[in-house]
């Protein structure tokens, strides 16, 4: 450390270069390296292959590898950018970047739209919202009468489906989110602003000079 001309980030065999990932995201090089610590701990939890599979993702989220969850599956699928059934380090960093406090509202809005457009039709449809609502109720062991679920869906679509075609398009979703900003709360992880503090063990290992990068 301390060499002003040093730009030599550590290399991770089989993974994208931290300097490149930092240049494409809101993370600094040392933050990308700190994320590698997190990635490493998740990706070796079941199979030590340097990739995160669905079971490992669930284990990291719930501390329980057998817990099936519709939403965790959706997040996993969106993180699995290359559609390989696993998340590699580049996918992990770029996807988490959307959750950075400094990421744009457009990116966050777009991510939530894709999250809820489960069938990838370009619309969030009523039956998808119903399916997610029922999944949420099961997960939280809440019971609501069928009529109540329909009332909630009616109300939601009355507010969000402005053209009344029974589905929520991208523009309708953007407008809805602007009126209901709390819906994007899940899209910001304060941890990401200070990731090197979250993983202090990394700091002692860093080979990167932040000034130089």
């Amino acid at each position: 450390m301390g060499c002003l001309h040093s730009t030599a980030a550590r290399e991770y065999p089989g993974h994208e270069n931290p300097v490149k990932l930092a240049s494409e995201t809101a993370f600094s090089v040392s933050e990308v390296e700190a994320l590698y610590e997190l990635f490493k701990s998740i990706s070796c939890s079941v199979v030590d292959d340097g990739l995160i599979n669905k079971e490992e993702f669930q284990l990291a989220l719930f501390k329980n590898r057998k817990k099936e969850n519709l939403f965790a599956n959706r997040i996993f699928d969106l993180f699995d950018v290359k559609r390989k059934g696993v998340i590699d380090f580049g996918d992990f960093v770029r996807s988490l970047n959307v959750f950075h406090p400094n990421a744009s509202l457009e990116e966050k809005t777009d991510f939530t739209f894709r999250l809820y457009d489960m069938d990838c039709t370009g619309y969030i449809e009523r039956q998808e919202v119903k399916q997610m609502l029922i999944a949420l109720l099961c997960e939280s062991e809440m019971k609501l009468a069928d009529d109540t679920i329909e009332v909630i869906l009616d109300q939601t679509f009355e507010d969000a489906d402005v053209d009344g075609d029974g589905k929520i398009g991208k523009t309708e979703w953007s407008d809805f989110v602007i009126k209901n900003p709390s819906l994007l709360k899940i899209m910001t992880l304060p941890y990401l602003r200070d990731i090197t503090t979250t993983f202090p063990s990394f700091v002692f290992n860093s080979e990167v000079d932040e000034i130089a990068t």
């Binding site: 989220l61 939403f71 919202v129 997610m132 609502l133 999944a135 969000a160 992880l189 979250t198």
Partner: peptide, 26 residues
């Protein structure tokens, strides 16, 4: 009785599966 301010997405966004903060908790 349905809370007047609830919409489906507000409920959905409380899912534990959407709370990625837990990835950072040991």
């Amino acid at each position: 009785k349905t809370p007047v301010t609830m919409n489906a997405f507000e409920l959905i966004s409380t899912s534990q599966g959407l709370n990625l903060g837990s990835l950072f908790e040991k």
